[in-house]
Design a protein around this nucleic acid. Structure first.
Lengths: 337, 337
DNA sequence: CTTGGCACTCGGGAGCAATGAGTGCCAGCA
DNA sequence: TGCTGGCACTCATTGCTCCCGAGTGCCAAG
């Protein structure tokens, strides 16, 4: 259907258009790439490519521009992920290794990725559901108020206030704390609900209301935090590209956690970079953007995803390289802390 | 210098320009507001106002537009803060009272403020320096690693990893934890450094390295977190106004913590709303924006600031009303949790 | 299948006139 | 002294035409 030269033409169109941001015509194409044929031949090829829906012209008498379908073919078959330079890798490593807690790791990662790709970066916090309990802490913070702190093996710390009906003794708290920790230590968060089901029965009669209160808040925390936290950075990079009309829509989408979550999407083939182009996106208003995303995690364990959002007209090979590299390094950093 | 009518004219110009976003001329002015004089008279007044620098015309044969100086006069002497409607107040209250921890309070606040004013909202986390220690927790998370968790009376939780040279026994940790808590409980964070200076001397010889490590991390935390955390929301609202060229600069500024901090500025008269207009701003690139900010806190204690950033051409009375109201409610919520 | 040639299309920019909102100024009037 | 109506003037904006050139599609020949 499409012979080698037509594919080469498509590739050239994508590359030229990405770098110049101007519709590319048959003449400029033969000038810039040495395709060994005349512009008339290219024109014929382009007519075919257009008929098949890989490219389009904004208006008659203008050059061609890749369509989403064209980008898709380019990503799937015409390009390879471009590895980062040694200098870049080193920069990533030193920058990330300076982080001192989970918030900081995520914060640095998202800024790094934004800067590296000059686009909007999105990073999801490590999943709670896949991590396990490292420690549970109960701290009295005021009359009738306890603070429940849950620490996971991924370094995440969750906190919730518990209202207790009356004053609670230090011993009761200490007892409950010990009980919780022996029950839960090392347990996957998904298994917590069943493990603590019979907790109230294990404490003395007087402390049962307390135990029940703590328990309900603990379970709530697990459920609510299930919808993961997600952050972005580099919105300023959007202004550089001129999205003119849809810029507002894109900004709105970015501020909506739920949309961001869907944006990164479910894990495709793990250990690979996923690309979603233009209308392949689940969200309206992001129809003119592409998302390049990847899983990150420690060893075989996938913790969450991160990625980049930019115009469909983006440098896919480089972006994919940056996303892949950052995902790997974050994994390493998390493993080592 | 400026008689009452000239002030009335200035007020009318500001109000008209804010609502229509078009330079306002003498004719439209007498039509819309009943000033009781003819347009020629208004023209004379406008000439004076322009000479004094309160208004300017984008080009000859165009209407007048307020200058920063004009807005300043308007805010200081020609307008009063517009209180929110009962419905709005109720909405704020119910929305904020649904929050369940500090992150959530701040997150809801910033989104609320952005939506209420249709501009960019900025909220600073409650200051660490002005709060006091509620509890210190030490948790072993791995071989050679401890997690230090610091809980303050404002509900803020700080965490840091401590690298210990060797394995540390549970007892050592327990001892140190108890020691820290008796030393620090209720202490203002500013007083922590002196209070813990002699800590290593209070533990048995073998635990001194541990104590020193914990100590240094604790002090680091206090210093580093001194530069407070700050968040924003509503960037999408920027796209609605057409900042055309400077939009990028504004977005850049928003992502820079340091700039944001400076933006809210030092507390002016507390319990009042502060307005900074256009070039009064410390930052270049925000020359065409205004900031409306206020302190918030519990009772007499000021914890931090929050505010709104928008075009100089904004509805100051309403914005000030919204900022003031939200600041008050956040204070109430924090007091009650 | 490729190529040079050629007519055709159409967006974008330059040039130009008409429009009209808005101004500054002035002389007259209370 | 301050207000007013009148009037000439300015100038951004709009709509119009015209022209240019990049780029195409098609065709006949190699």
């Amino acid at each position: 259907m499409l012979d080698d030269r037509k594919l080469a033409v498509l590739r050239a169109i994508v590359e030229d258009y990405v770098s110049t941001n101007e519709p590319v015509g048959s003449k400029t194409l033969v000038d810039r790439h040495n395709l060994g044929v005349s512009s008339a031949t290219i024109r014929n090829d382009m007519a075919v490519l257009e008929e098949q829906g890989y490219i389009a012209q904004p208006h008659t008498s203008a050059g061609r521009v890749p369509t989403d379908k064209g980008y898709r073919l380019f990503v799937d078959r015409l390009s390879t992920i471009k590895p980062l330079s040694v200098a870049e890798r080193r920069a990533i490593e030193t920058f990330l290794s300076g982080a001192y807690d989970l918030d900081d790791v995520v914060g640095r990662t998202v800024r790094l990725l934004a800067q590296l790709t000059r686009q909007v970066a999105v990073v999801q916090y490590p999943s709670l559901t896949r991590s396990s309990v490292r420690h549970v802490e109960l701290v009295p913070v005021a009359e009738g108020r306890l603070l429940l702190v849950l620490i996971t093996n991924t370094g995440r710390v969750e906190q919730r206030v518990i209202e207790t009906s009356g004053t609670v003794s230090e011993e009761s708290i200490g007892h409950l704390r010990a009980l919780l920790n022996t029950c839960l230590d090392g347990l996957g968060l998904g298994d917590v609900p069943t493990a603590v089901a019979d907790l109230p029965e294990k404490v003395v009669q007087a402390d049962r209301p307390l135990a029940a209160a703590v328990l309900s808040v603990l379970l709530e925390t697990l459920v609510e935090k299930h919808e993961e936290k997600i952050v972005f950075a580099g919105a300023a990079n959007l202004a550089a590209v001129d999205f003119s009309p849809s810029l507002r829509e894109v900004l709105v989408a970015l501020e909506e956690q739920v949309i961001l979550m869907r944006l990164l999407g479910e894990t495709g083939d793990s250990s690979t970079v996923t690309v979603r182009i233009g209308t392949e996106n689940p969200d309206l208003g992001l129809r003119s953007t592409s998302v390049v995303a990847a899983d990150y995690g420690v060893g075989d364990l996938t913790l969450a995803r991160l990625g980049v959002l930019g115009p469909t007209r983006m440098d896919y090979p480089s972006t994919m390289g940056a996303v892949r590299a950052v995902a790997r390094y974050v994994g390493q950093i998390l493993a080592g802390s």
